[in-house]
Design a protein around this nucleic acid. Structure first.
Lengths: 334, 334
DNA sequence: ACACCTGATTTGAACGTTCAACACGACATT
DNA sequence: AATGTCGTGTTGAACGTTCAAATCAGGTGT
């Protein structure tokens, strides 16, 4: 009826509980002959160790918490779901599973994590959507709950994190456009203050500067909220300027899509590169900077599980991964 | 150090283990005076019952398995992530959490579910992306693992399912277009055989028929794989016909986006309605049929958990929910 | 022949919870 | 006065696993 236990296997193989356990966890301690006998019994009964009992005994659930957040209403399908899948896949390799939970806000998230951790349901948590000054890392650190953050807060020397090199992404976009012959390259981002947005702006500015193209580009740095409408509007502003740009680097695919809409409506000539390589980018033939999300997933799990016992514990707390530019028609040289 | 246990609370309140347990699970059995004492002790120590121990004792993990699948490379961000969030939210209300796992194919999914179920990690599973003749429902039924399916296989009298009324969705799209003055309304779907696709085709055909518009509409029913390119190509075919349609109902937003691309390239007059209301639909100003995904989430959890003990067990195995048409510029009357 | 080790296996205990059975006093019934 | 019943609280046992300590046979060396 009920799934077989070690005891059942032991009885079938004519040995004791612990010997069965040893066959699974420390085979070298068991005489090959006995081991074979136990293994056939396991096979025949289709025995699988009960994870719950293991968790209780070992005081570790091998579960990682993850807050699934509602989609941002205006976003074109964020990279959130790609990340989630990458995380699950990476967890599988490390024999960890994800436990999903919901929360109303960052405070609530910390509270829920604490509850789950206290209850033994999760060993740690992966944080997504880190903002500068995010209350979650300090909160969890104080509660001594293991976690790893996707993104940086500005004060992240104390905890494991993984991040995309956002500046390198926009810089790569600029390089690509310069190679394509563009000299006036605008930036459309969201307002200063958001760490991610600022880094993407920095990459654009630095790359322009390296090519000596920054002078007289002040009017080409526009900001607004992350929405289609804003992208559209800012594109109007750019195109209506006496010396309009010939190319735009956008901080998100959403903004890029807005720009593209205006461009296509007005039949203007304006190369566009977005950021995140959302599914929509493919649909719109929009060049975009793609985050190496699978690598991020693996790095997050590694960072969360910490140094494997035996390795040197003084490993770096953070890891920065390079994104990749996907070139499509929206930025093809004319 | 370690989180407090019932024993700790009991000691602090000067009672026994079981009394603490009773305060939490059967308060009416405890004298109000004692109950108050225990409750303050719980409060002070910040006690939370250990879920793992509860699971071991009760032989139920209160976890629901869910296979997270990689994104379809050509899809414009499916409704998958919306569904996942709705499911997590619905689970919260029922004190259930989701456990994510990955799998290579349906067979592998069944195998992984069995492993997790045998290991006591999950009580049941929610199936997504059901196809006609899907091997998962019969497989899980044979293994006696509780599950609920989002979608129908064609032979689903035997298990709980929840589905969108796909036919009603395309029918609503037709109604909307007829009201807008359209008389030649085409359908672009994917090939026959896929249950979902066929139902969406049926809805279109039936609605046309009710308005007496089906005669001479044979050439307006086109099929192909679910991709942008196909949508584009089929739109060309429609527009090149001697009596082209004035409107198109597409089986997916992906196909609709393809149609829209051609339409806008050729500056043709062709109203378009998609299906799924993906984020991309908003970006393209595409009218689309929206699935009531939050309601589906709750219905799935209810269906999975089955009749609450006390209610009549002979409840219906399936539930059909009506979608809603979201009207945008792509189908606005000219 | 004795103590001593080594390898293979077994038994006891514990993780934290809740069900089942039991103990005890107060009060009601006959 | 003996018996029953209820309300409140206790202790024992069990869920399935693995760590720690105990057991036991089979050598090896002196």
């Amino acid at each position: 009826m009920h799934p077989p236990t070690v005891e059942d296997v032991a009885r079938a193989a004519g040995v004791s509980r612990q010997t069965v356990s040893n066959v699974l966890n420390a085979p070298q301690r068991v005489r090959p002959e006995t081991r074979a006998r136990v293994e056939t019994a396991i096979e025949q009964l289709g025995y699988r160790p009960n994870r719950v009992a293991q968790s209780l005994r070992a005081a570790t659930s091998r579960m990682i918490g993850y807050r699934i957040e509602p989609m941002h209403p205006h976003a074109l399908g964020s990279i959130h779901d790609r990340f989630l899948h990458a995380l699950a896949e990476a967890g599988r390799a490390a024999d960890r599973h994800l436990l999903l939970f919901t929360a109303d806000d960052p405070q609530d998230e910390v509270a829920n994590v604490q509850a789950l951790h206290r209850a033994g349901a999760i060993d740690g948590v992966v944080l997504y959507g880190i903002q500068s000054g995010d209350p979650r890392p300090p909160g969890l650190r104080q509660l001594r709950i293991p976690f790893a953050a996707f993104g940086r807060t500005g004060a992240d020397a104390e905890h494991p994190w993984v991040d995309i090199d956002n500046a390198a992404g926009t810089a790569a976009a600029v390089e690509h456009l310069v190679t394509g012959g563009h000299r006036r390259i605008a930036f459309v981002g969201y307002p200063q203050g958001a760490a991610v947005g600022d880094r993407r702006a920095d990459g654009w500015r630095t790359a322009l500067d390296q090519h000596g193209l920054l002078d007289g580009s002040h009017h080409l740095d526009l900001r607004g909220e992350d929405s289609l409408a804003t992208g559209s509007r800012l594109a109007e502003v750019l195109l209506d300027h006496p010396t309009p740009p010939t190319a735009v680097v956008a901080a998100t695919d959403t903004l890029a899509a807005g720009v593209l809409r205006t461009v296509r409506q007005r039949h203007a000539r304006l190369a566009v590169v977005g950021f995140d390589d959302t599914p929509t980018a493919g649909a719109l033939d929009l060049s975009s900077v793609r985050q190496p999300i699978e690598a991020v997933g693996h790095a997050m799990i590694r960072a969360l599980l910490g140094p494997v016992p035996g390795e040197t514990p003084g490993e770096p707390t953070g890891q920065l991964l390079a994104p990749e530019l996907i070139v499509r028609a929206s930025s093809a040289p004319h």
